[in-house]
């Protein structure tokens, strides 16, 4: 239909009148110009991004040359004064803090999604759901501030004695607690990724048709059995998508973590000890890095973070995508 309209307009130039934007250029050409402008813009965005990535790699080149890729990620010797850099402790810190946050946040998120969708009346579920979603809108710096002045003392004075009292024999809970450290960072991260996982879970649970739930209830299932049978097991892959997406968010989270993790570059098996993540070391040192090698090393850490979050995010996306396709019947 579009074809006929434009062809006709070439033969008979559009009439004057309310159509004041007519510039004496045939409609077909106008459309062509428009498309090409947009294509150029699209191309520019892509080129820009590609350039930035290339520049990032180039910026880190010196560090790769100096230490070698494998050497860089397998040593934890980070010493800006001596210009010696190894990034293992940051890799470790990011992985452990994010996994721990996920271990706390994932079950809680699934539970609160079920609570909001299945246990509360719809209107109350909506209000509390909005409340949970608001967590995602609170700036990371505010979490950090709260983390320093409230959560860290809480971890030091309340949580640590509790953990030491019950699980103190584990290597995870050795040494003194300064309040700030891996555990505190993980707790903050957990709070921050709950809304991400919860909102995906709620969407996934909403795709379950009502008659599936009724089928379970009609068989004499209790509410718990109904949830397990009709909601949780068919949603498994969707939930996983949300969890992986939450993991991606935790990996890249910077400020709140930088403020409460303690910024130590040594690897400690204790969760009470201070540590560092890839994002936190960049936040802490980038502005003050004066040697080129230091900047390059930080950029290399940045590349690792970039690539890891990229992989995780696309994994999450494809899981969710497959889930949606399966349920789009």
């Amino acid at each position: 239909m579009e074809q006929t309209v434009t062809q006709k307009s070439i033969k008979n130039p559009a009439p004057k009148g309310p159509d004041s934007f007519h510039l004496g250029i045939p409609f077909k050409l106008q459309d062509k110009i428009n498309v090409w402008v947009l294509r150029t813009l699209a191309f520019a965005i892509i080129t820009m991004l590609a350039t930035l990535i290339v520049l990032l790699f180039k910026q880190s080149g010196e560090a790769v040359k100096e230490f070698g890729l494998w050497n860089f990620i397998s040593t934890d010797n980070w010493n800006p004064v001596e210009d010696e850099f190894g990034g293992l402790s940051f890799l470790y810190g990011t992985t452990v803090s994010s996994l721990l946050a996920l271990a706390i946040a994932a079950p809680v998120s699934v539970a609160i999604a079920l609570f909001l969708n299945e246990m509360l009346p719809a209107w109350l579920g909506k209000i509390l759901g909005l409340f949970v979603e608001m967590i995602a809108a609170i700036p990371s710096i505010v979490f950090g501030l709260w983390g320093i002045y409230y959560l860290a003392p809480f971890v030091k004075n309340t949580l640590t004695p509790m953990l030491k009292g019950s699980l103190g024999f584990l290597p995870l809970f050795q040494g003194p607690s300064f309040g700030i450290g891996m555990l505190t960072a993980s707790l903050i991260l957990a709070i921050m990724i709950v809304p991400t996982i919860t909102s995906i879970c709620r969407e996934v649970f909403k795709t379950i048709p009502g008659h599936q739930k009724e089928a379970a209830l009609a068989l004499g299932a209790t509410r718990y059995e109904m949830i397990k049978l009709a909601i949780l097991s068919p949603s498994f892959s969707g939930i996983m998508g949300g969890v992986v997406l939450g993991f991606g968010r935790a990996l890249g989270e910077t400020m709140a973590v930088a403020m409460v993790i303690g910024n130590s570059t040594t690897i400690s098996s204790s969760l009470l000890a201070p540590a560092s993540t890839m994002a936190s070391v960049i936040a802490n040192e980038y502005a003050e890095a004066d040697s080129d090698l230091h900047v390059a090393a930080l950029c290399l850490v940045g590349i690792f973070l970039f690539v890891i979050t990229l992989i995780i995010n696309f994994a999450a996306r494809s899981i969710v995508w497959h889930f949606n396709r399966k349920h789009a019947r």
């Binding site: 520049l55 890249g252 973070l305 996306r317």
Partner: peptide
């Protein structure tokens, strides 16, 4: 192809940690 690559680029930008965005602007 162009719109697919653009879509991919936008996805990529959405997922980039904000600290990396800082490095981009710094380099630029």
């Amino acid at each position: 192809a162009l719109s697919r690559i653009l879509s991919f680029a936008i996805d990529l930008l959405t997922g980039v940690p904000s600290i990396i965005v800082g490095i981009f602007a710094y380099i630029l």
